[in-house]
Design a protein around this nucleic acid. Structure first.
Lengths: 349, 349
DNA sequence: TTGTTTAAGTGAAACGTTTCATTCTATCGC
DNA sequence: GCGATAGAATGAAACGTTTCACTTAAACAA
């Protein structure tokens, strides 16, 4: 019959039960202080019997450390984020820290409110994926360490991927396959990462004289009428999307109009979200190491909490092209063989 | 120049600055006690100037309420959960409560550890989506209120959907369309919800003498060889999947073998995850009101925290068939018109 | 006037820890 | 045998609140 009762044993009670002082009990439990081996063992034994569990709140109040961090992301519903969140949570837990999660639903106001709530709750640090490039929350922080994901704010530790290179990779791939009329629908350009991707891709394509058009989109498969219009009138043989979600939207739209992907137009995405490979056709895209970035974020944060005055860090991860089935070749002699889960696509065009 | 410094003003300092006692300051800030209007206003004014923010930890220690709840789900990476989590977070925040999130990655051990960590951290309550049907965490709870999602554990408040009905709905739909050889690949049967769905569907189909076969699967689009084998040898004209993820896996496999969906075999899923409508063909499925369930979960939990001794609740939500494009008719005279985002599928078979 | 009631405000204990400063004992060097 | 030293254990303050019980003073009834 275990002590699963509602009331938890306190340190004082433990001390009394073991016949020692509260201080000794504390030292025993925390493996600190100068206690004799036998005393320590004795206290620990009693503690186990009584199922003593330290009250973390009291501890936190004394030490100023809660062992909790906050994670603020725009939208868990966007398939880009669950992986990130999951990895953050796992990594944190491995160090015994819990994570509060907040989602900001794209609003700077919500962002401020969430951060404010978390900070006042007394988190040790914050991992923040800002919606846009402005530091909406600086004044609310009151000294809480923050690492920023995917944006380029100054004054914080930064975790990023090499989006510029990603944009080039996508563009170069298309060009190499013979495409000379390329359209690009970007992500929302008030986001640094989207801008990086777009600028690099557009720059590269333009330098080759192959830019058909470019439009700004949102991180969603539901395309704005302005975009579908461009698409419908387009003579491009390939389009670069600023995110996989957008790419999927583009493909769906194209298909609904009876244009074959990649037969008639190729589409390349960005992010390599989990759906990408489940899509028909499976999405060629630029992947970034989300899990590694998440790990880096919590490690950086934990370190910053330890040493608040170390110089700021900026970690940039590599990206890579992952070829699947949504991109085809235009050069007459080229052949693409993509073996994707048993589906072999033969010569395209 | 605002007080964004690292150190926060304490109640004591506020009291001194306002020339009142600590008690009065506390009462003023909390809008309680018996204070004169002018005194109260004065204290509040000073508090605003000093940017006083109550230390939530101290408050929590005194009152025994942290204003935080835990959310324990199996796997954020499964597209079923982000919606749920997001809604829980939003709803909680509307009541000023923050949510700790933990994911258990399918392991009962992790589940126990996570719950344990959260409980010791001092959450006011827990929303728990158990992996299987066994109460792995009961002894760790120490009186923390819990509401259980999607399972049927006794001793807790329960939030469920009418899975049995869902299974029947799916089966009835297929039968109505003339299918007489139906296969079903279930979810993992150690999960209550999966069992409910499976039993109901299989029961219904069998009663019509139309069951071709049934196999147990996992909540994943990656199909076990045992399943693909059954699929390959199957003469079924339709298959019911225990989850959309499974349905997608089935469709992909079928397609890779050159069998048309829904032309040759129809597939119906369960859950209506966000991908469902993005899939090609768009998935016919049974939807459940995840957001409403999430809201109900936090409301139930908050109420339970308020009144621990109220009788336990069990809330069951309705499910509904959503017809899209992955199911076709077998009865010769039937015609299906599915208008799905501009794609019109004409007469099938 | 005197006693009673009410409003306004305060002192201090308590929540469960951590940790500094201190005391107590026993051992050691000589 | 004596002071010094080190090891073991403890007392109590402190962290920032909440809240009970109490005091003070003013207002009122008779």
């Amino acid at each position: 019959m275990t002590n699963s009762a509602l009331k938890r044993i306190t340190l004082k009670e433990l001390a009394k039960a073991a016949g020692v002082s509260v201080a000794s009990a504390s030292y025993a439990v925390n493996g600190a202080g100068s206690l004799g081996d036998s005393t320590r063992a004795h206290i620990l034994k009693i503690a186990a019997e009584l199922e003593y569990r330290p009250n973390q709140l009291a501890k936190a109040m004394k030490t100023g450390r809660t062992g909790a961090i906050g994670l603020v992301v725009p939208d868990l519903t966007n398939p880009f984020f669950p992986n990130l969140a999951q990895t953050v949570i796992q990594t944190a837990r491995r160090s015994g820290v819990s994570v509060f999660i907040a989602n900001t639903e794209g609003s700077a106001d919500q962002e401020r409110k969430s951060v404010s709530l978390l900070v006042e709750r007394g988190i040790d640090g914050l991992i923040w994926f800002p919606i846009v490039d402005t530091d909406t929350v600086g004044p609310l922080l009151r000294g809480t360490p923050v690492v920023v994901l995917d944006r380029n704010l100054s004054g914080y530790d930064l975790i990023q991927a090499d989006y510029g290179r990603g944009g080039e990779l996508a563009a170069a791939h298309l060009i190499a396959l013979g495409h000379r009329h390329i359209g690009v629908v970007t992500g929302p350009l008030d986001a640094w990462s989207a801008r990086q991707r777009a600028n690099a891709a557009i720059g590269y394509i333009r330098a080759q004289g192959s830019l058909a058009w470019s439009v700004e989109g949102a991180f969603s498969p539901d395309l704005d009428p302005a975009i579908t219009k461009v698409l419908d009138e387009s003579r491009a043989t390939a389009v670069i999307a600023g995110a996989d979600l957008i790419a999927i939207g583009v493909i769906r739209h194209l298909q609904s109009k009876g244009v074959a992907v990649p037969g008639e137009v190729s589409v390349i995405g960005f992010d390599d979200i989990p759906w990408a490979q489940l899509n028909t056709p499976a999405l060629t895209t630029i992947e970034m190491p989300v899990e590694e970035m998440a790990v880096a974020a919590v490690e950086t944060l934990l370190r910053r909490i330890e040493k608040p005055s170390e110089p700021l860090r900026r970690v940039v991860f590599n990206v890579a092209l992952v070829e699947r089935a949504s991109v085809g070749s235009l050069s007459s002699e080229a052949t693409i063989q993509v073996d994707e889960g048993g589906i072999t696509l033969g010569r395209l065009k």
